[in-house]
Nucleic acid binder design. Structure first.
Length: 420
DNA sequence: TCTGGGGTCCTAGGACCC
DNA sequence: TCTGGGGTCCTAGGACCC
């Protein structure tokens, strides 16, 4: 187990990714909106200074004073995924043991010889130079402390983007000043529960009797407490754990009221989920479909969810068929549906699946058809070939009014971008 | 008019089974 | 008066994370 864990993450990662290819965005307050151009999910420092908060619905705050200087972008996940890959390559080139934690964060084993401060400074500079992503880096004896150190590096610019929490004395000083809700794994609900019991700071929480921590917050909270005390419970996992599920869920660009539209949307979600499975060589033995109306706008509420065990498969047609069968039992006309989704679970490797005694389709033929479709879509672009059930016009598709070009993965979009 | 998507883990009651 | 226990699966929801 490493003696020192590090955490490096990108500052306002999606904003930084947008700015990497659009110098004109570098000096303006910038936000990136969630799917459907809904909420602010990334804000540049300038946008934060203007009071845009994480998760603010843009349509509710855009008319506030000062907001007209804020530039917004639709989210562009292929771009961010590619920027993340570049970020990772730089990090992995300088640190031997790296755990990808999220699209913009990596845990590091910093149990390395030499001047740690100098290494971390060089790492940040190299990520900025090569991947064009500004970062912060924190480190300490456990992952939870590294996460806290990273949080401090971000919150306190005077630290120069770096924060070393290896010293117990330094940690104690910060613990006394910081709210327990700032700890990784202690969310708003838990922080409020603790506050009502007189546990306000991290120092209060660390001083809590271990049995009380466990009784109050289960094993999860007990582990957080141990980690904050400097006892490492969370190892570095360089290999990603096998995924347990694959979900495709979307808010619609406008309310869906017609069965034909809902059927097409759910078929498209099932097809996309099937593509995710095939990309990883997995099949699913369990499928869930859900739908619901808008919980925010006063529309009559209706929601439903239905699941079924299925013959393990990654075949788009088979999964669409199962999804639509479940959807039919959920559909109630007369409602304005805002969102639906398909979730696949009980995933396992396709290879080595036992042969069904009475298969309902020819598995060899299915695999050939899917492989051919995936190959065409990889060579041309996603959605070039797809099951007809997923619809042509797609009136339910999410809004994305200001999508940046996929600078790093689509040559034709760069050419369009240059013509701007 | 417009309020994200995709994960993980945990809990709880009811149905059903042996 | 006393009315089993343990397992799985289902639906639903809560909490947390990015």
């Amino acid at each position: 187990m490493p003696a020192t864990y590090g955490l490096i993450d990108g500052n306002s990662f999606y904003c930084s990714a947008e700015r990497a290819f659009a110098p004109g965005l570098r000096r303006v307050p910038l936000i990136v909106l969630s799917n459907n151009d809904g909420c602010a999910i990334a804000r540049s420092a300038e946008a934060k200074a203007l009071g845009v908060r994480m998760g603010d619905p843009w349509h509710l705050i855009r008319h506030r004073p000062g907001m007209d200087s804020v530039h917004w972008q639709s989210s562009n996940y292929p771009l961010y995924a590619d920027m993340s890959r570049r970020f990772y390559q730089v990090v992995a080139g300088m640190v031997p043991r790296v755990e990808p934690y999220s699209i913009d964060e990596f845990f590091l084993d910093l149990d390395l010889p030499g001047d740690l401060h100098a290494l971390c400074t060089a790492l940040r500079a190299e990520v900025l130079r090569v991947a064009k992503i500004p970062t912060c880096l924190g480190w300490g004896p456990t992952k939870t402390i590294a996460k806290l150190a990273n949080h401090l590096a971000k919150r306190h610019p005077e630290l120069g983007g770096l924060c070393d929490l290896r010293s117990p004395e330094l940690r104690a000083a910060w613990y006394a000043r910081l709210s327990v809700g700032e700890v990784w794994g202690i969310g708003g609900r838990t922080a409020e529960k603790l506050r009502r019991l007189g546990v306000g700071t991290i120092a209060d929480f660390v001083a809590l009797d271990a049995r009380d921590a466990r009784d109050l917050l289960t094993v999860v909270g007990a582990r957080v407490q141990l980690e904050l005390r400097g006892v490492s419970c969370l190892p570095l996992a360089m290999m990603a754990a096998p995924r347990q599920g694959a979900a495709v869920t979307r808010s619609f660009g406008r309310p869906v009221t017609r069965w034909a539209e809902m059927r097409e949307a759910v078929a498209a979600f099932a097809h996309r989920a099937a593509e995710k499975l095939r990309a990883e060589g997995l099949v699913a033995g369990h499928l869930t479909v859900f739908l619901h109306t808008n919980p925010h706008n006063g529309d009559p509420w209706h929601s439903g969810q239905r699941a079924a065990r299925i013959e393990p498969t990654a075949d788009s047609g088979a999964l669409i068929g199962e999804a639509l069968r479940l959807l039919r039992s959920l559909w109630q006309p007369g409602y304005r549906y805002a969102k639906a989704g398909v979730m696949l679970n009980d995933l396992r490797p396709e290879a080595g699946q036992p042969r069904m005694l009475f298969p309902t389709r020819d598995p060899v033929r299915s695999a050939r058809v899917m492989a051919a479709m995936d190959a065409v879509n990889a060579r041309h672009s996603a959605g070039t070939l797809r099951p007809l059930a997923t619809g042509l016009a797609r009136p339910w598709a999410a809004r994305a009014a200001r999508l940046s070009p996929r600078y790093t993965t689509r040559l034709e979009e760069i050419l369009v971008a240059r013509a701007w």
